[in-house]
């Protein structure tokens, strides 16, 4: 299963971004192969439509679920129709490496 994580930077030490549409990087993590792909968000500074554009990017990467701090109202119906799961992280300052650790924990079970 592929998971997209909204990230503030392009390292494992980066934090999960609170905003999905305007995050700096998307991390696409595949828990079957363990591969990680850091993709810069081209719509980071867009005035409008950053969310839907971000959804398109995630869809093109074939992610099944998204981890972020928050999802805007334009994104929700799009993700519902694409059957992509939203996971809202409650804790602030969670690192990408910690999220991946959590996702791996699931696999080892």
């Amino acid at each position: 299963m592929k998971t997209a994580i909204a990230s503030t930077g392009n390292t494992l030490e980066s934090k999960v971004d609170r905003r999905f549409g305007r995050c700096s990087y998307f991390v696409i993590y595949d828990d079957e192969t363990g591969s990680m792909d850091f993709t810069p968000n081209p719509h980071k500074d867009d005035e409008e439509g950053a969310g839907p554009a971000a959804v398109q990017l995630v869809v093109s990467k074939q992610a099944d679920q998204i981890v972020s701090g928050e999802f805007g109202i334009k994104i929700k119906p799009l993700l519902d129709s694409q059957r992509i799961r939203m996971i809202v992280i409650q804790e602030e300052d969670k690192k990408i490496s910690e999220v991946i650790e959590l996702l791996n924990h699931k696999k080892s079970k």
Binding site: R85, I89, L102
Partner: peptide, 10 residues
């Protein structure tokens, strides 16, 4: 466990 909130698309 991790205090996250998630939805169920399926």
């Amino acid at each position: 466990g991790c205090r996250c909130i998630f939805n169920n698309p399926d």
